[in-house]
């Protein structure tokens, strides 16, 4: 399997969150195939950029997409389709 680029990892993280709506950090870690340290780094960056936000539900920590994150994911899906069209 080819090594994922940073943008690929970010897409995987955002897709995992998008699929579930809101997701526990541990689940996200397993689903996106990352170590705890890697996960922490990406989550802090994505929070900083306003793409994800944390929610608390009965002592549970959950992560969800913001509007900005959802629109970024749309843009990425357009980019993928554009690349696929030209065989890039």
């Amino acid at each position: 399997m080819a090594k994922r680029s940073k943008i690929d990892i970010i897409i995987d993280i955002l897709n995992c969150i998008n699929e579930k709506g809101k997701i526990k950090p541990t689940h996200l870690m397993y689903k996106s195939n990352l170590s705890h340290i890697q996960m922490k780094g990406y989550l802090s960056k994505l929070t900083e950029k306003g793409m994800i936000e944390e929610y608390s539900d009965k002592d549970k920590k959950l992560i969800g997409l913001t509007k900005r994150g959802a629109s970024f994911l749309n843009e990425i899906s357009r980019m993928k389709e554009f690349q696929e069209t030209f065989g890039l």
Binding site: E75, I76, M79, F82, Q83, L88
Partner: peptide, 18 residues
């Protein structure tokens, strides 16, 4: 413009050439 925009997102050089 679209190719340049997506190049800035992905850094895929093929998009830049396109």
């Amino acid at each position: 413009i679209i190719s340049a925009k997506y190049y800035s997102l992905s850094k895929n050089k093929k998009l830049l050439y396109l």
